[in-house]
Design a protein around this nucleic acid. Sequence first.
RNA 1: CGGGGCGUAGCGCAGUCUGGUAGCGCACACGGUUCGGGACCGUGGAGUCGGAGGUUCAAAUCCUCUCGCCCCGACCA
Length: 568
Amino acid sequence: MRYSKMLIPTVKEAPAEAISPSHVLLLRGGYIRKLGAGIYNYLPLGHRVLSKVARIVREEMNRAGAQEVLMPAVLPAELWQETGRWDAFGDVLLRFKDRKGTDFCLGPTHEEIITDMVRREVRSYRQLPVNLYQIQTKFRDEARPRGGLLRTREFLMKDAYSFDVDDEGAARSFAQMREAYERIFTRCGLTFRIVSADSGAMGGSMSAEFQILAETGEDAIVACDSCDYAANVEVAQVALPQRPAAPATLAPLKKVPTPGKRTIEEVSTFLGVAPQKMLKTLIYVAGQRVVTVVVRGDHEVNEVKLARALGMSEVFLATDADVVRATGAPVGFAGPVGMKTEVYADQAVQAVFDGVTGANEAGAHYTGVNPGRDFAPRWADLRSAGEGDPCPRCSGHYKAYRGIEGGHIFILGTHYSAKMKATYLDAAGVEKPIVMGCYGIGVSRIVAAAIEQHHDADGIRWPLAIAPFEVLVTSVGASAEVRAASTEIYEALSGDGFEVLWDDREERPGVKFKDADLIGIPIRVTVGERGLKEGVIEVKRRDQKEAARVTRSEAVALVAQMVRRERG
RNA sequence: CGGGGCGUAGCGCAGUCUGGUAGCGCACACGGUUCGGGACCGUGGAGUCGGAGGUUCAAAUCCUCUCGCCCCGACCA
């Protein structure tokens, strides 16, 4: 492809609204343009990258035995009402009516639709297992789209659904998808971690996220430094630390004045007590229940864990008014001693002796607080894991990372099949619900995540497998020699099946080099008058500083070798 | 949804406080000189100042309403 014929509108200055590196570079490189909040046009380069990621996904899904289908983007409300998600989905679901007044939505995901498809066609265990997938545009009316392609309202997603006769079968399907996903993310040139995750309100068992590691990632994850356990902090377990021996004598419970000192930091400074000796006390509302939660002063309550411990799907931090009602004191002075509500405490609190906590009285705290003696909570793992915390599986410790959720696989069980009566007859003629799994990959999100992981100050550094082109031939100078040599190399590489972009524009060299770095094609072949005089062509990788200086005849072979090695 | 902020030429911005008839840089078009890391000179085109209403002799500027967008948080099958 000739650069001069292609629409690649690079710009020096990105719109002020772009903050994250991938957003800025996609805009500047002429890959995408914004049409509305979280809605983007893909220009030629952007579309090429998106297609490449989709192709890799498709190849690996097919290799894993999944079959491609295509479901509509416009979905009748009827099916959603069957599972109750028409209401449960809330504002994220973009709804509208047709001319007859019938309710529809734009599909944010397709469990109901695929389950309906399968229940109509599958009767017998002989037709199972089956794994169906599609690569399709989804719409979710996100409260807050952000980061360009990282979190959009309309996005391209691969969603697959497995249907098995039983849990063992589903586990096999799950394992196959996990393997396929590892191949996909690896082929895309991404550094990622597979982590245990929350499966959400509608979830089932076995949930794993494929987290693409990046500083700018929305998700916090932890991974053990000595075994392979890794998890989203939403669910990461924390091993009970070694409990220090209790001191010979415990201090007596004592009320001390702490006027106006509300936060852990204020109280700890005021009383000269380390935050680790403080008992952070928060009031939560879970359905009809009001619950007091205690964690160590330097720890954070994990609301996903708390909800699970309480057997609820979600919990909310109490309002200031609720806190006053529950504790009899303003926010900042709550404590478990004498508390009338249910009291839950994180297990790390067991190791706090002679601690400090609010006295449920304005301007007062207790010192010498000892769990067991002064209050009797229910113990649970309630805090968020962080760097350095002990691994629950071995003697290692956690390292903390940030990640972008590129994929999520989990087993749904019979959640949808039971509600929608998607059943089969087993060998004994007994009707049973199909056991399902579901597997998503954010195709457009991967495009952005790859840049978050692979860029520098000058622009994008695409992994070769998903780059819009594999090779960029840059002609420097307008002489007949340059043109002839460029044409020769361009045609040789193109003829051998490589994806080549030839910068044949009548631009100054500086402009071409800047654009080259910006759009980030992995291998650049520079054909210039200066080099040609010495019979030299330059071959340079985008991620390396130095160019290889080779002869015209060597250049094509060298590039071919480099590309083949990285195609994967 | 809570907090903060922004809408002026395709992009980045100034002008708004203190009302007086819209400007700078980049980009774009043309001419010339340049040509290995975003050239220079000259000329030129391009803006319902997000929208509606109001105040005023006069509104980008003041007032009211409204729409859109961004950032932090909440939310995220």
